[in-house]
Amino acid sequence: MNIFRLIGDMSHLLAIIILLIKMWKTRSVAGISGKSQILFALVFTTRYLDLFTSFVSIYNTCMKVFFITASYFTLFLMYHKFKATYDSNHDTFRIEFLVVPVGGLAFLVNHEFAPLEILWTFSIYLESVAILPQLFMVSKTGEAETITSHYLFALGSYRALYLLNWIYRYYFEGFFDLIAVVAGVVQTILYCDFFYLYITKVLKGKKISLPA
């Protein structure tokens, strides 16, 4: 464990908590893409299958349990409890156009042609594009609530911090995972224009309003 990965995990944890707070406090899922939340639940499910087979640390296990539980609870809030506030008209990204190619790529490009490894690779590739429905929805609605912007900033920062974690681990531990790094770079790049808007607007007290 290093400081970059720890802050990254905390940023990821914060993002999920911000989202749950937003939904619980406003009793609304307006502006949130259910499609992205489905992809995140799929990412955690396929990545944490080793939850019961390999024990790394208490921290690792607790975080995995929390991430999986929180992602399914988020789906429950979106598609059941606060379903009336779900904006399906603006959440129209065809996620099959993400899942199918990512699934194919995971079969072709992986470290080891074994079920758990291919599922892990699938979850890494899928996570790098899982935010697309959400960013697409923000561009379609033309604006995002401030708390949703904080959610996206924390979520985008987590993988950017993981990039620093991989640089650190390369130099100090000789650890390097090309698949995770490439997917992490793609994932972080997807947030770049949002990061720009967040830093130039939200931090100055304005709302994010994209040219619709």
Partner: peptide, 10 residues
């Protein structure tokens, strides 16, 4: 490169 078989990252 040393591909860590034991996935210790989240």
């Amino acid at each position: 490169f040393d591909f860590l078989k034991e996935k210790d990252e989240l």
